[in-house]
Design a binder for these strands. Structure first.
Lengths: 183, 183
DNA sequence: GCGCATTGCGCAATAG
DNA sequence: TCTATTGCGCAATGCG
């Protein structure tokens, strides 16, 4: 039902540069299973291969294609370890069923991992707020205690004074105030 | 199980199945400049079209190709807004020099943004530790103040007692304990 | 060695 | 229009 229109030049285009590489066509569909279809065309000899892959198409429709050879990133990339070839053919069949399955799984894993990461970040942020609140609470408490202490100290000193001075229980009993609270 | 049928005709392709989704073509190349090329093969009729594009290939060798149509994520993709064509031809010349420059700039921006994001996350984490330490400090202070208060209260009560009782500064002066500190 | 988890990276879409 | 963000897929790599 969806009709896609692509205005791709139709004629034959030539890839004249070298180094070229691979082309992929991907389509996403939706069902759950996966059917695979691969097509490969060997158009111009030596320069380019194309394959059409029908992927399960989860939600999105993007695909990415790496160069066939590892080609080190940046300029310092190490050359392609020649040993790669032995494993499973250089290009590692991008059309291969197995390849697709692996990609799919990895994509899931990536999604999961990112979600987790995001969640964690959020939790951390929340933790900050939590701690900030806690801090305020504690700070307030300290203020209170400090004040209480101050008052008590004053009272105490006062009495101590009285006691030390002359001890005259009747006169200056509760009217000594000469202070406030000062941390 | 889903089947996709693509009828690619030279200029316009129609994908007539449903749910379809996206088609992408990718290729990696490596050299520095960019030459473009496309290749098209009309092998089996109705099933597949391909074009190859040669991109400048910066440092890495990866390329990504988006689906030609915006195809909303999640499956609810809206059809291709027909308006896109007017701008610069759908595919927006991947080979275009301008395109490459834009990509380059965006890649920089992305890198920057991610760095920033990472930095922020790290700062947040640090903030958590900072706050935790602060909390401990405050907690300790509270403990101390509480204890001090308790002691002072006791002393104070004691004296008050003495004063209220009979006022006999010598006998039970510092041995009244009948309590502890209970916050 | 295998399979999932992480991470860096580029592409696009989109927000600002 | 340009940059900043964000989601996504691919690979390389970490890790058990």
């Amino acid at each position: 039902m969806v009709h896609v229109k692509i205005s791709w030049q139709c004629g034959v285009e030539t890839i004249d540069h070298l180094a070229l590489i691979s082309a992929r066509l991907v389509l996403a569909r939706e069902s759950a299973q996966m059917s695979k279809i691969s097509q490969q065309n060997s158009g111009t000899p030596g320069v380019n291969g194309i394959s059409v892959i029908h992927t399960p198409a989860h939600a999105s429709g993007l695909q990415q294609v790496p160069q066939l050879v590892p080609a080190g990133p940046g300029g310092g990339g190490k050359a392609v370890p020649p040993s790669k070839q032995s494993k499973k053919s250089s290009p590692m069949d991008r059309n291969s069923d197995e390849y697709r399955q692996r990609r799919e799984r990895n994509n899931m894993a990536v999604k999961k991992s990112r979600l987790k990461s995001k969640q964690k970040a959020q939790d951390t942020l929340q933790r900050v707020n939590q701690l900030k609140e806690e801090n305020e609470r504690l700070e307030a408490k300290i203020k209170l205690l400090t004040k209480e202490l101050s008052v008590l100290k004053d009272l105490f000193l006062e009495h101590a004074h009285n006691l030390a001075d002359n001890v005259q229980p009747s006169s200056t009993e509760k009217t000594t105030n000469s202070d406030s609270a000062g941390q």
